[in-house]
Write a protein that binds this DNA or RNA. Structure first.
Length: 416
DNA sequence: TGTCCACTGGAAGGGAGGGCTT
DNA sequence: AAGCCCTCCCTTCCAGTGGACA
């Protein structure tokens, strides 16, 4: 070994605090046990057992906030169902999981579903191109020929409905009623309790034959979940009871989100590991909490479309110049100037208004509609985060780099 | 009390970009 | 090659509106 040492050497000397399988601390890990979800699992199994008997199970709607174990339970029961199928099933049973966060149009849902039943690559339904009714007919024929019970899970179905309306749900119900041999059940998973208001009453009543509500976990339940995962993923004695309690308490405060609790714990361990510490301390948990929050925000900013970034930059610049709140019209003026500077054709004010609302939903800015009486009615926009951080991330964009030195003067009207 | 501002946010539709069909 | 279809991003048009002011 050379005197200066290899660049990896000091890191190699650090001892890993994880055991071999750290996947247990990642969100898509499906554990052997799901603590405090026994009754939900049982209820779901009770409904789905019908499929093993060769009949169509009721359609189900599952509600619950993020991180309440909806997806885990549904996947868990699905896995068990597939095992049981080998032993008990009297006819074909298939369990298909679709996440509507990515598969978010009627076309793509049908396409995903259909391709499950199409073996040959050259017969698969392309991801775009076919008329919708042709996709529908193809899917119907394929599933009907296959002859069995299909259970389709639509995770985050509220997103799908918000985006594309309830057409797709109607089509799935129609699919079921038009088939001669096969049957199809839908399990919808939603974060939103009131999303069924958007549904056509007929769709609503047929989709919600059974309802399951997942309550948030409390701090004690989160502790149990974390303990389970720690046993699998982390070396003995590295994570103390206090650390687990802290993680659980923080997550419980944020609506009992188990996913967050697990992530928080994982990052805490990583923080300790990177420091070369032998055990995780509470301070690592708080470091991890900050890191997660910051990562989340900067990722959101980085992946913004260019025009949204320009708007955000406009808000940041004016914040820097001492004007912390702006109206849509003012933002639009600054936005237009900035766009011209970097040689980009500005969008219309109508479109900007939508982009502002989008960023409001992301929590990057705060926008409120306010009336100034005689002086009109408009959104009042403020930056939701520290300017320095936001600006730094924005200026990483290759189109915005040149605006590094741009300043707004702090006059009543904003000039360059 | 009515007026009127500066928008908001819905609706409709254009057109580019993906792809298939004939 | 021409003619479709679906989705996404955007524009155009416009009725609607909360509340200060005359």
């Amino acid at each position: 070994m050379r005197e200066t040492g290899n660049i990896f050497e000091k890191h190699m000397r650090k001892v890993s605090l994880f055991k071999g399988n750290r996947e247990a601390l990642y969100p898509d890990y499906l554990p052997e046990n799901l603590p405090h979800r026994e009754s939900e699992i049982d209820k779901l199994a009770e409904i789905l057992v019908t499929a093993l008997k060769g009949e169509k199970p009721s359609n189900i709607l599952i509600y619950g906030k993020t991180g309440t174990g909806k997806t885990a339970v549904v996947r868990y029961v699905g896995r068990e169902l597939m095992h049981a199928r080998e032993v008990y099933a009297r006819r074909n049973v298939e369990y298909i999981y679709i996440n509507c966060e990515t598969v978010d149009t009627p076309y793509s849902v049908l396409q995903n579903l259909g391709n499950y039943f199409i073996e040959e690559w050259d017969e698969k339904i392309p991801f775009t191109g076919w008329p919708l009714d042709k996709v529908f007919t193809t899917v119907k024929e394929k599933i009907d020929d296959w002859n069995g019970i299909v259970i389709v899970v639509l995770d985050e179905v509220d997103k799908l409905v918000a985006k594309s309306g309830d057409d797709i749900l109607y089509q799935l119900l129609l699919l079921d009623s038009e088939m001669k041999n096969s049957r199809l059940s839908v399990i919808g998973i939603s974060n939103e309790l009131k999303f069924t208001d958007l549904l056509d009453p007929r769709v609503k009543s047929r989709l919600t034959q059974e309802k399951l509500i997942f309550p948030p976990y409390n701090a004690y339940q989160l502790e149990d979940i974390l303990e389970e995962r720690v046993k699998i993923a982390v070396k003995d004695g590295v994570v103390s009871q206090e650390v687990i309690s802290t993680c659980a308490a923080i997550a419980a405060r944020e609506h009992g989100d188990a996913r967050r609790a697990i992530e928080l714990l994982r990052i805490s361990v990583e923080m300790a590991e990177r420091e070369g510490a032998e055990r995780v301390e509470e301070r690592h948990v708080y470091l991890a909490k900050n890191k997660i929050e910051m990562d989340c925000v900067s990722e959101a900013i980085r992946t913004l479309p260019l025009h949204s970034k320009i708007i955000l930059l406009a808000v940041s610049l004016s914040d820097e110049a001492g004007r912390s709140s702006l109206t849509t019209g003012e933002i639009y003026q600054i936005y237009k100037n900035l766009s011209r500077r970097i040689g980009i054709q500005p969008l219309t004010q109508r479109r900007i208004s939508d982009l502002i609302s989008e960023m409001d939903m992301l929590g990057l800015i705060n926008a409120k509609v306010k009336s100034f009486g005689r002086y009109g009615r408009t959104k009042v926009v403020e930056l939701g985060l520290p300017v320095i951080e936001v600006k730094k991330i924005l200026l990483e964009d290759e189109f915005l780099m040149d605006l590094n030195n741009v300043k707004l003067s702090s006059q009543k009207k904003l000039f360059f």
